[in-house]
Amino acid sequence: MKKIILSTLAGLALSSTAMADFPNKDIQGIIQWGAGGSTDTVMRSVSPHAEEILGTDIILTNRTGGVGAIATKYVNAKKADGYTLLMGAENPQMYKVLGLADIDYSDMIPVNVLARGIPMLVAQNDAPFNTMQEMIDYIKANPGSVKVGSTGQGGLASIVMAMIESEVKLDVTTIPYNGDGPALTALQGGAIDVMPAVLGAAVQHIKAGRMKAIALVDNQPSPVLPEVGIITEALPGLDKYLPYGPFFGVFVKQGTPDEAVAKLTDAFTKAAQAEDFQTLMNNRGYGIMNLSGQPAVDFLENYRSVSSWLVHDAGFSKRSPEEFGIPRP
């Protein structure tokens, strides 16, 4: 009974749009990653705003596993009615070439690409280099002596290193960790020397002087760390890959009615403009994107082709991007 009243009210509120019957029940939000992770935090802080606009509850569930593939497949197996949202990170864009699953975001409709992380290289304070050029020179002079942290093949760190390797061959020792958090801890303890991480994860440690910034892997400096140089100063050839970075987005299954997609898009676009969400993203060092429609599709395509081909050229893809018709960047 309460629901009927609620949906009637929601209907009245949206009476300017004809036939406002979406949403008339709770929406399920399926989060790809575990409780407390960055994807979880982003989704749990944007959802309350979208709920207000949609006039319905979004029930969030963490369905972890398989690098996000379990949640992706779960949403894809549901009805295409807009009542099941996939709340995910960048990982599905690599599923095909890494042989993890046969679907990615190109098989879904993006509701909103909310934000993007800016990758950067950080080094431990005792490392004998301060800039990208000095780092390259040092590694060339001392092959094998620099330990670089990673988050596994296909993870952000491996892709940043593959980008650099596409311009200059470097002999480093790679040590994998389960995520950039543990790797940055290891960096402070001296177990590794260099880590490609997202700005948001490293910024507080840099400001406190516990590690040093080498370069931003982006095509423009960041207002959060204005004094840090960008990687294209040392390696101009990387410009073709940028801007690049892990992202967070909300998706629905292909075939969802246009009306539902439009309402969801509208709700999340407004939700992403909420002041506290913006503050949160800025504090964590993420760039707000708030992309929907064609611009979102373009960003996702670029991300997929850059990562897929870098991974393929570096030799750790299971299948060639060509098989899936992924164009070279």
């Binding site: 407390g36 960055s38 507080q204 406190a208 949160l280 504090n283 964590r284």
Partner: peptide, 14 residues
């Protein structure tokens, strides 16, 4: 740590 972020604090060495 995630909760502190959401509430506008910057958990970290600072």
């Amino acid at each position: 740590i995630g909760a502190l972020f959401i509430h506008g604090l910057n958990p970290g060495p600072l």
